[in-house]
Design a protein around this nucleic acid. Structure first.
Length: 810
RNA sequence: GCCGGGAUGGCGGAAUUGGCAUUCGCGCCGGUCUCAAAAACCGGUGGUCGCAAGGCCGUGUGGGUUCAAGUCCCACUCCCGGCACCA
């Protein structure tokens, strides 16, 4: 017999909604708490990952309300994206209708879990009221020169039929469909996120309440390298080859230069040279290779001599210019200076093509010097050391020489100090229908014209032919494409690509602050009150993509004067995945557990309780169909206790029971502050077990049950509210002040100490709390068990830790 | 290769931050109730030796510090995640 959850869960959900229990309004007089969970893509039904994410958020929101905070806890839908469009292609449903019905279904299921959202702030990114501000922000960026359109090699997913940002390519595959991406040369829109690279990197240091893992991932992704650009002039021509290096200290050891096969200078260098045909054949060969093939490590480094020479600026030495497949055109300057003695890749290349090596760094004194004959080496020496054969820099330590040589070369106009980033500008054009139209018009006489602000939103047409055969569907909608130029009124064409949907989610947390605002994306004064998000919760799969873009957007909007916040998310909790049989739940594996079915069977509180109890929030959660029964039994017992306590008059708890009650308050409170929901529930179970052993006439029985119900509230709010009412209260627990514990109540008059002999537990003794060290030592030595182990041997040392232990060393 | 995280009973996981290893829950074993089963409730449950009292061993491996180590230090193994011919 389970407790009658089905009769009261919906009742409390209705009551919370009718009383607007979780409605939040900006109120500078009250401390705010902005709690946010990553909003879902409306796929139709919620899955266990959603349940876990949103349950964690709900526990914290309810707890914060009860701690007196003004809590902003909104929910919405990240509603643009490919699944809706794919459904349209497959089944002929209009994306908007499909999306709207998915939202409806999802919201019903979310409501059945009793989450404490301020539903009045709901946003959905596919509405013109929302996406017009994507366009508005895009135009602001365009004004500031942060949006540009250019012809570039881009990532193309042949299955999704669209371009992708670098962040959307995982292991050379599309993040959405796992299909290997291709390179294409296309004209596309980019956002200059690299303009914020330095700040995005630097501010990671402020994010001390983010998981180290996420900060490291972002740091790696941004990839800052400090070094120098060095200019090598081509012998007998006016051409300059800039190379980037992080090791200017090795410049005197540069014995050749290597260009990427795609380097723009190649054709000039080989013109009229006998090597020309061979070079062209090599470039053709490289072009035919896939990116993975070319980048796979431990394959021999292939290359070819151009016939041209460059001058090493520091010693005027002519050195050969090669082309090599290990040099990437998209990083640095697409060309390198090769120092085979001190770079492993150059070392391997020089071995393969019999190129000269020169040692310019010797290991620090006291270690074995390098063999003079470098041809016998097995690998390059990449460590620090002392410079040799480097003219005026001889005997300088290599790490200091990095800066000295770079500065000297800058003064001699041989190059400049510079920084390279791995981060690329963000490609945002998508050749898809279901997204925000890019608010740009192309005019024959005026060129690229931004749509004027007063003409926003550029509405997405309700229908477009979607064939799945590629090409932007909007290009086929005449009424959309053909327009008069906003500047000269001559016939012009609209941009027909849509924006990457990651733009939608890059500022939605600001929109929640003023979800119905019509003049601006959000009201600055409201954002100033609510922002930053105090606690953000979501999956670690967004560690780079969404979190990096959101940080960038926030910084841009700050610089545009709309918000004072520079970092959107103060604290970040990345919840672990929900697994079944050791694997992520998926339809194709057939290991999906449907949350809604479980709610029917066990009730929302049990499902919530289980996902909180089964594992710490950051860890993976292995679903166990049997273990959920443990939570069911626990909640049943709480229900039974509240029924038992109903007729019992209040009486003050004392002694042991009082201690257990206050201990539970302390533990649950501490655990909520540090997100240890699993141990918080353990503490509640212990209190419940302790009450179970009491008769209802025991002093403080009612107090114990009432405390249990109060502490259970954030985890199982429906049951707690119902039980609270059963116990004769008329107020809702939602706004009732969180219980506090009395530190004095935690103390006991007697404590059990352990007695160790040589570090092993040999006896236990009961002593008054805070007893004197000498007294405890005496008691311990008098214990018969201890006597037996001491066996009259002389004592060497005795360690006494009051209230804990006595350790006797013999 | 570089960076980040981890390894504790049959299982999920605890351990007041150096002080009784395994809270709590699942599973399993035994019992109560029942014609029976389920549910519920009660008891037990790291390994090993022992009739018992009790002993010995035990937190990935090897060493160290300490009266005392899951926790600190050194060296390693394996697993998970990120980056990577990035110059």
């Amino acid at each position: 017999m389970t407790y009658p959850f089905s009769t009261f869960e919906s009742k409390w959900q209705d009551r919370w909604r009718e009383s607007a229990a979780f409605r939040a309004d900006a109120d500078p007089a009250r401390p705010k708490y902005y709690l946010l969970e990553m909003f879902p893509y409306p796929s139709g039904r919620i899955h266990m990952g959603h349940v876990r994410n949103y349950t964690i958020g709900d526990v914290l929101a309810r707890y914060r309300w009860r701690r007196g905070f003004n809590v902003l806890h909104p929910m919405g839908y990240d509603a643009f994206g490919q699944p809706a469009e794919n459904a349209a292609i497959k089944r002929g449903v209009a994306p908007r209708a499909w999306t709207d019905s998915c939202i409806e279904q999802m919201e019903m299921e979310l409501r059945r879990l009793g989450f404490s959202y301020d539903w009045s702030r709901r946003v959905a990114t596919h509405t013109p009221e929302y996406y017009r501000w994507n366009q508005w922000i895009f135009l602001k960026m365009f004004e500031k020169g942060l949006c540009y359109r250019t012809h570039a090699p881009v990532n193309w997913c042949p299955s999704c039929q669209t371009t992708l940002a670098n962040e959307e390519v995982i292991d050379g595959k599309c993040w959405r469909c796992q299909i290997p991406i291709e390179r294409k040369e296309l004209e596309q829109w980019f956002i200059k996120i690299t303009a914020y690279a330095e700040e995005l990197l630097k501010d990671l240091d402020q994010l001390t309440a983010w998981p180290e893992r996420v900060r490291t991932m972002q740091k790696n992704w941004i990839g800052k390298s400090e070094g120098a650009e060095i200019w090598f002039w081509v012998q007998g021509s006016g051409e300059k080859i800039p190379v980037f290096t992080t090791r200017p200290d090795t410049i005197f050891g540069a014995t050749y230069v290597v260009l990427a096969p795609e380097h723009p200078l190649v054709s000039k260098l080989i013109a009229g040279k006998p090597q020309a045909a061979q070079v062209r054949a090599f470039i053709e060969k490289v072009r035919r290779q896939s990116k993975e093939e070319r980048l796979s490590e431990d394959r021999p480094k292939d290359g070819v001599f151009t016939g041209a020479y460059a001058i090493n600026p520091v010693n005027q030495e002519p050195i050969p210019i090669w082309i090599g497949d290990y040099v990437l055109v998209e990083y640095g300057t697409g060309a390198i200076m090769a120092v085979p003695a001190h770079d492993q890749r150059d070392f391997l290349f020089s071995k393969a093509h019999d190129l000269p090596m020169r040692v310019v760094i010797q290991p620090p004194q006291g270690t074995v010097p390098l063999e003079d004959d470098a041809s016998a080496w097995k690998q390059a020496y990449e460590e620090v050391g002392t410079l040799v054969s480097s003219k005026q820099f001889d005997d300088h330590p290599s790490d200091a020489a990095k800066k000295e040589i770079a500065a000297w070369m800058e003064s001699q106009k041989m190059g400049r100090r510079t920084v390279q980033w791995r981060l690329r500008d963000w490609l945002i054009s998508r050749q898809r229908y279901w997204g925000t139209p890019i608010p740009i018009v192309y005019c024959r006489s005026c060129g690229t014209v931004p749509v004027p602000e007063n003409q926003l939103p550029v509405e997405l047409p309700g229908e477009a032919p979607m064939t799945g055969e590629g090409g932007s569907p909007l290009a086929k909608v005449k009424a959309f494409v053909e327009i008069k130029c906003p500047k000269c009124q001559q016939p012009a064409r609209r941009e027909t690509d849509t924006m990457a949907t990651f733009i939608d989610s890059s500022w939605y947390f600001l929109r929640y602050c003023s979800p119905r605002e019509t003049k601006l994306p959000f009201r600055p004064e409201e954002a100033d009150y609510w922002m930053p998000v105090d606690q953000y919760i979501g999956g670690v799969e967004h560690a780079i993509l969404h979190l990096l873009y959101s940080r960038f957007f926030t910084k841009f909007l700050r610089d545009a004067g709309l918000t004072k916040t520079g970092e959107p998310f103060q604290r970040l909790l990345t919840q672990g995945m929900v697994l079944k049989d050791g694997a992520v739940m998926s339809k194709s594996r057939g290991n999906v557990v449907d949350p809604d079915e479980l709610i029917q069977k066990y009730g929302a509180d049990t499902v919530r309780g289980y996902v909180l109890f089964a594992a710490p929030p950051e860890d993976e959660l292995e679903w166990n169909d049997k273990a959920i029964g443990g939570i069911e039994r626990f909640l049943n017992r709480v229900w039974a206790l509240s029924e038992k306590a109903k007729p019992v008059p209040a009486s003050a708890a004392a002694g042991d029971l009082r201690r257990k009650i206050h201990r539970a308050i302390k533990r649950v409170t501490d655990d909520l502050e540090s997100f240890k929901f699993n141990t918080a529930l353990s503490a509640l179970m212990e209190l419940s077990n302790a009450l179970q052993e009491q008769t209802e006439s025991a002093a403080g029985f009612r107090e114990g049950v009432e405390t249990l119900v109060q502490l259970l509230y954030p985890f199982a709010p429906h049951l707690a509210e119902e039980a609270w009412q059963q116990l004769g209260h008329t107020d809702s627990l939602t706004r009732r002040t969180w219980p506090t514990f009395d530190p004095a109540a935690l103390k006991t008059s007697e404590v059990t100490l352990i007695v160790q002999v040589n570090g092993k537990v040999r006896a236990r003794l009961t002593a008054p709390a805070d007893a004197d060290k000498a007294v405890l030592e005496k008691m311990a030595l008098a214990d018969p068990n201890v006597q037996k182990w001491l066996n009259n041997q002389p004592l060497r040392q005795t360690v006494v830790i009051p209230n804990k232990l006595v350790n006797i060393v013999i």
